[in-house]
C-alpha cells in the first residue's frame, strides 16, 4: 500500500511516499518558499524520486492543522483534490501529533508547540514512547500552557521551530523540567503524518468532499461578531 503524505500546516514543508510502512522518498524543507509556490512541485518531485505516478498512490495522508490558516488550507486543498479525483481514501492527522512523533523516543512528556502569535500557541501534550494523548490539540496562551504543564511535575520535552521564541518564558516557569528537543527533529515530517494515518481506518471516498482543516480557532471577524451580539 503506497501513501502520499503532505505536511504544510506551518512554515516548514514536507512530502513523502511511504510504501508498506517503508519511507521511499521524503522532502523536508524550511526555506521560506511559500506553500502555494512549493507544495505541488514538491509532490511532483517526491513521486519522481519514488518512481511512482499519481495513479499508483493508494491513499493520501495530510496534516489537517492546527497551524497557519493558509498553510493548512493549501495542504488540505491539494490532498482532498488529489484524493477525490484519483478516488483514493484521505486521512487527516493532527499537525501537533505529527510534530510530537519526532520526539517519540523520549520517555517523559512531549509538548509540540507552534506559534499562533500574540503570546499564544497551538499545542498539545503526549506521553513519550507510547504517544498517548494527554492534552488535546488546543490554542492557548503560553502562560496558561506553562501553568498546566507545571502541575504534572514531570520533565517535558518541547519540540518545534517556534519553541525558541517562547523558551525564556518556558524555562522561567518550568525550570529544569523543561527540555529543549534537539533541533534536528524540529521540522515536521510527512512520513510521520503517514505513519500516524496508517493506524487509522481508511476513509470513504464520499467523505473527501467534506474534509476540512482543523483550525482550532474561529475566524477573527466571527469572534468579533459574536462579541458584538453578546452586548
Amino acid at each position: 500500500m503506497i501513501y502520499l503524505g503532505i505536511e504544510t500546516a506551518n512554515a516548514p514543508l514536507s512530502v513523502a511516499v511511504v510504501e508498506d510502512g517503508n519511507v521511499i522518498a521524503e522532502i523536508v524543507q524550511n526555506n521560506k518558499v511559500t506553500h502555494s509556490n512549493g507544495a505541488m512541485p514538491a509532490v511532483e518531485e517526491v513521486l519522481q524520486k519514488a518512481k511512482i505516478t499519481a495513479a499508483q498512490i493508494d491513499a493520501i495522508a495530510v496534516s489537517q492543522g492546527p497551524g497557519s490558516y493558509t498553510g493548512v488550507r493549501i495542504g488540505v486543498t491539494i490532498a482532498k483534490t488529489l484524493a477525490w479525483t484519483l478516488q483514493k481514501p484521505l486521512i487527516g492527522v493532527s499537525s501537533l501529533q505529527a510534530l510530537a512523533a519526532n520526539a517519540s523516543l523520549y520517555s517523559g512528556l512531549i509538548c509540540p508547540l507552534v506559534d499562533a502569535r500574540r503570546q499564544h500557541v497551538y499545542t498539545a501534550l503526549y506521553e513519550g514512547l507510547t504517544l498517548e494523548e494527554i492534552m488535546v490539540d488546543t490554542h492557548e496562551s503560553i502562560d496558561d500552557l506553562c501553568i498546566k504543564l507545571k502541575a504534572f511535575a514531570r520533565p517535558v520535552m518541547f519540540v518545534g521551530t517556534d519553541v525558541d521564541k517562547y523558551w525564556e518564558t518556558i524555562e522561567a516557569q518550568l525550570g529544569h523540567l523543561a527540555i529543549r528537543a534537539p533541533r534536528a527533529i524540529d521540522l515536521p515530517r510527512a512520513s510521520q503524518v503517514v505513519h500516524i494515518a496508517m493506524a487509522q481506518p481508511l476513509s470513504t471516498v464520499e467523505a473527501t468532499h467534506h474534509f476540512v482543516p482543523q483550525y482550532k480557532r474561529i475566524a477573527e471577524a466571527e469572534a468579533n461578531w459574536l462579541k458584538e451580539q453578546k452586548k
Binding site: Y69, R73, K80, W84, H209, P213, Y215, E220, A221, W225
Partner: peptide, 24 residues
Amino acid sequence: KRFGGVVPEIASRHHVEQITIVIE
C-alpha cells in the same frame, strides 16, 4: 451578509469546503 462585506478568512474557509464539490 452579517459582516457587511466579504471577510477574506471566511471566504477562504468556504472555498476549501466547496471546491471539490463544485468541480465534481
